[in-house]
Design a protein around this nucleic acid. Structure first.
Lengths: 184, 184
DNA sequence: GAATTAAATCTACACTGTAGAATTTTAATT
DNA sequence: AATTAAAATTCTACAGTGTAGATTTAATTC
């Protein structure tokens, strides 16, 4: 009887073993704990469930990771539109980077997603932070692209070099960007 | 005799089937053709050789990819230190991006490498292009970090969204950076 | 000529995502 | 109440991945 064989089929009573929420929560835990995307088998083991059970809730692994990404990205810093814009942007960037580095794989998942919803979250928050500047579209867009891609590059470096790069590394480059912005 | 069984053991005469160079060349071809890192089996098949033969020349797949990376990065644009620095930097960035997007996987391989030789190539060329500005160290370093990580972010976006992003997308953000640089 | 090294193949393993079928329970329909 | 359908789960199995280890053959060295 070495390995306990679990009973097959739908569980009795109202004791559903799983739910999207539970799966996502555990996936986030493992992602943060192990610093890398868990395998479906590892995730299922943690949930005490057969790996294939996950497919009842998500079409495939990519869909699961996208759901994790959407859910996590809501948590980035919400800037105060009436604050000091430079400090607000800085805090937003730090928050974004902390998230992307605490949950490796988020970045690639986000960039590969068909819906750009998650990517828009950062951009929307950036607009909030920059409200005081009242930038025109042609001024805002290059800044947005520069900032987003720069942070993605830093996040990628962080996740290729775990623990070796602090989020503060963006401060001097951010100053450089700000300088180009204030000297219009 | 459906499948032809190749003769085992060291080949006769001076007809060595493989060499580091041949492997690297074919790896680059497949990388560019298929737009993704080939499997060792695919690479070996293209070379008409057993997959394990590759391990005679490289310790593992990562080592092979690192060799590809080192070899390819030499090819980026060599700026003229006496040219117009803005145009030189722009051309360097375009060249760097074209390389990173033509050979997906290069970026991650480079960032994960222990030796930072390959990453230094871009930085050295950037210094060349910026010679006319005679920047102090404290001015150069933020610029270097900003530019490198920004380009890596763009390259990542390109490789997550194949064919959808032209290298020219960096032009406006580059102008923004240049502005912060000329207004010292 | 014997021993060593070089260059290759073969076999086999653990790990991955996941397709497809079987099983058990609950809900819906007749 | 009986039947049918749907939901929630497990089991089995497969193809694809990198690669460890043993084996084979030929060239080189002593």
């Amino acid at each position: 009887m070495s390995v306990k064989q679990k009973k097959r089929g739908r569980p009795a009573g109202s004791s559903k073993a799983l739910s999207k929420l539970i799966i996502l929560q555990q996936a986030k835990n493992l992602l943060a704990e192990q610093g890398k995307i868990p395998t479906l088998r590892a995730l299922a083991a943690e949930l005490n469930v057969d790996p294939m059970a996950l497919y009842h809730y998500f079409a495939n692994k990519a869909a699961l990771l996208e759901a994790v990404t959407v859910s996590l990205l809501e948590a980035i810093y919400q800037p105060n539109p009436e604050g000091q814009w430079q400090a607000e942007v800085r805090q937003l960037c730090h928050s974004y980077l902390e998230l992307l580095s605490r949950y490796p794989g988020l970045l690639e998942t986000m960039l590969k997603m068909s819906t750009d919803g998650p990517a828009q979250v950062f951009i929307a928050r950036l607009e909030q932070a920059l409200t005081p500047l009242a930038l025109a579209k042609v001024e805002f867009e290059p800044l947005r692209d520069l900032l987003a891609d720069y942070l993605h590059g830093v996040a990628l470096a962080m996740q290729c070099n775990p623990g070796g790069i602090p989020v503060g590394c963006v401060d001097a480059p951010l100053d450089l960007i700000f300088r180009g912005l204030t000297s219009r």
